[in-house]
Design a protein around this nucleic acid. Structure first.
Length: 493
RNA sequence: GGCCCCAUGGUCUAGUGGCCUAGGACAUCACCCUUUCAAGGUGGAAACCCGGGUUCGAAUCCCGGUGGGGUCACCA
């Protein structure tokens, strides 16, 4: 793909974790940039000093990296359009602010937040739109001076034309018209001198040469304001594309009470970056061929804004799990071992730094385990029998397969005997042959041998194929567990 | 409440006036496979929000209604 002039950005505010909605927005921007051979810029929108959260930027960058969404310019790597923290771009805003004030395109407003809040409430109560009433709009220089002398720090408001309208030509939604009458003179600089979102965003997108602004739909109604800023500044706006929101299963905005919402949480639950990325891609976008599972390269190749839908998508963890499970099953045993290690350690099955022998053991178990796991944590969970001997036997299973204690004990003894005759290291085919022979010899079904064994060895009634399981565990361990089960049966009899 | 966006099965979606007896995927149900559980395979049930237009013909275009969402901060 030839390099192009496409420049897009993801501009998170460091007030928390990387939310899946934000991750999806970042992903679409990234996909768009990569598809067009353009540039993906990361910019930190930290103009609200009161809402900064310790470690948030690191968390967000980390989440993005984990997902594989690499950026070409950003806070940590710099770039020609820097700095990439808005808090470091104050001189730029100051300059533009002065420019607008000098041209009387913006004016100082001395109303306090409290006064504004009161008036807003009054308006709301009276059924009127809670908009700024413009009382500082035409203050004379003398009046301004008087208020300033009174100790009031003004904010700066953009002078919005009272009539006319602003057209947003959205790449996804088409032409959306906003009447200026519905807008008010919004604040572009706070009393502390920091710019507000609508101003900083426009200034930065313009000065950073952003060509396409791809963001969540919640920003659509901000767009006319930003367009007004561009106009006042005499700058050319980017092309806008507002992607649909991601909603919770009850169609409300996604929040904590809906379970995992941040990328970090999904990561901690054992989801794979490939699974999450693939799922997120399918939320609001669909490939031409309709395939569900796409490697990143294919997404990049296929991604266009034309195929982004308009309706909000309800996030469905079931499908995420299904996709994740498919990616899990596509990994090699070695990759899976490495990925599962932290989860195994967290459950106390393995030390954080396992020995080569433990690793080798694990590599034998993982192919068995992954067939019934959709996440890394589920895989770890399913590995319990592998690392620890059963402390008890599943009650329902015991009621069925250990009903007659004496008989079960005898049968397990018989089983142990014939297993001892199988040459170590065990191969599952040999084990199966031994079971088949014994079942013929004893005149019982294979199941009558298999089920009690499984219960004795794992304590469970469900799990991987018994013979593969025993092969992975090894003769010493299996025999020891069989013996332990017989002792238990003797005790319980 | 004002403004704005949206509307295909439970969920994600394909569909851009005839190819639609509306396709795919997840979930669900049944069956098959089978030593259990999964995985896998096969099959089933399941949708164009409603009402008006336009048109020979509408899921597709227009209008209205309804419903959902977003936004109206010195947050982003």
């Amino acid at each position: 793909m030839p390099p192009s002039s496409v420049r897009v950005r993801f501009a998170p505010s460091p007030t928390g974790a990387l939310h899946i909605g934000g991750a999806r927005t970042a992903l679409f921007n990234w996909l768009f940039a990569r598809h067009h051979g353009g540039t993906f810029v990361l910019r930190v929108e930290d103009t609200d000093q009161t809402r900064l959260q310790e470690g948030s930027v690191e968390g967000i960058l980390d989440g993005l990296r984990w997902l594989g969404l690499t950026w070409d310019e950003g806070p940590d790597i710099g770039g020609d359009a820097g700095p990439y923290y808005q808090s470091e771009r104050l001189e730029i805003y100051r300059d533009r602010l002065n420019q607008l004030a000098a041209a009387d395109l913006a004016y100082p407003c001395y109303c306090t937040p409290d006064e504004l809040a009161v008036r807003r409430e009054e308006a709301r109560a009276a059924g009127r739109a809670p908009r700024y009433d413009g009382r500082c709009r035409d203050l004379s220089p003398a009046e301004r001076e008087r208020r300033a002398a009174g100790g009031r720090r003004p904010v700066l408001r953009l002078r919005v034309p009272g009539d006319g309208e602003t057209l947003v030509d959205d790449h996804i939604r088409g032409r959306v018209v906003f009447a200026h009458a519905d807008l008010d003179d919004f604040i572009i600089a706070k009393a502390d001198g920091f710019p507000t979102y609508n101003f900083a965003c426009a200034v930065d997108d313009a000065s950073m040469g952003i060509t396409h602004c791809i963001r969540a739909e919640e920003h659509l109604s901000n767009t006319p304001k930003q367009l007004l800023v561009y106009r006042a500044l005499g700058a050319t706006p980017p092309r806008f594309a507002h992607v649909p929101m991601i909603l919770a299963p009850d169609r409300s905005k996604l929040s904590k009470r809906h379970g995992a919402t941040s990328v970090q949480e999904f990561r901690a639950e054992g989801f794979l970056p490939a699974g999450l990325v693939n799922y997120l891609t399918l939320l609001g976008w669909s490939p031409e061929g309709g395939e569900e599972m796409l490697p990143v390269a294919r997404m990049v190749e296929q991604f266009t804004l034309e195929r982004v839908g308009k309706n909000a998508a309800v996030y469905d963890v079931k499908k995420l799990r299904w996709l994740n499970g498919r990616y899990l099953r596509e990994m090699t045993a070695a990759e899976l071992v490495r990925a599962a290690l932290p989860f195994l350690a967290r459950r106390g099955f393995l030390p954080g730094a396992p020995s080569p022998a433990q690793l080798a053991l694990l590599e034998r178990a993982v192919p068995l385990l992954r067939e019934r796991a959709d996440t890394l944590d589920e895989l770890a969970q399913g590995a319990a029998w592998f690392f620890q001997r059963p402390e008890s036997y599943d009650p329902k299973g015991a009621a069925k397969h250990f009903a007659d204690r004496a008989e079960a004990r005898a049968r397990l003894g018989l089983l142990a005997q014939s297993l001892e005759a199988v040459a170590a290291p065990w191969i599952h085919a040999d084990l199966e042959a031994a079971y088949t022979a014994l079942s013929t010899e004893q005149g019982v079904s294979r199941g009558a041998l298999i089920h009690p064994t499984r219960l004795a060895v794992t304590g469970l009634t469900v799990g991987p194929g018994l013979f593969e399981l025993m092969e992975a565990l090894g003769s010493d361990e299996v025999l020891a567990r069989l013996e332990a089960a017989r002792r238990w049966l003797a005790r319980e009899a």
